[in-house]
């Protein structure tokens, strides 16, 4: 007997917010119901197999007009590694001035994801 799982997924692609189900057999998407566009199908398929999220947080900055620098992941982070990335970023401190776009952490935790500064700090 094959491993068979049905996941309920709420699409976030647009305001319609379709709710659908994705059936996974042996780690592969076997069937999808309830989604009404290709964007929704692609989102739902990724969401059950390898969900990812963009991560935004702050790191400490010294010598600037503000104590914190907002940072954003350049590409999405695997959902189950978000808190590991946050722990790493909590230990990071940079010195002003910082310009928007500067890579603050590259290849975080070997995930291949960079974090960059989201603003200038003078």
């Amino acid at each position: 007997m094959m491993a068979h799982m049905v996941h309920a997924i709420q699409c976030i692609g647009c305001p319609i917010g379709c709710g659908g189900e994705v059936t996974v057999k042996d780690g592969v998407v076997a069937e999808m119901t309830g989604f009404t566009c290709n964007k929704g199908l692609a989102y739902a398929a990724e969401e059950v197999v390898a969900p990812k999220r963009m991560v935004t947080t702050t790191v400490r900055v010294s010598g600037g007009g503000l104590p914190l620098l907002p940072v954003v992941s350049v590409t999405p982070v695997p959902k189950e590694r978000i808190f590991d990335c946050l722990r790493l970023l909590r230990s990071v401190s940079v010195a002003a001035p910082v310009t928007e776009g500067t890579i603050i952490v590259s290849d975080a935790l070997g995930l291949g994801v960079d974090f960059r500064a989201a603003r200038d700090i003078a």
Binding site: P70, E100, R119, D120
Partner: peptide, 10 residues
Amino acid sequence: EELTGPGYAH
């Protein structure tokens, strides 16, 4: 493209 709030302001 998807920007942060400070990115849009910038």
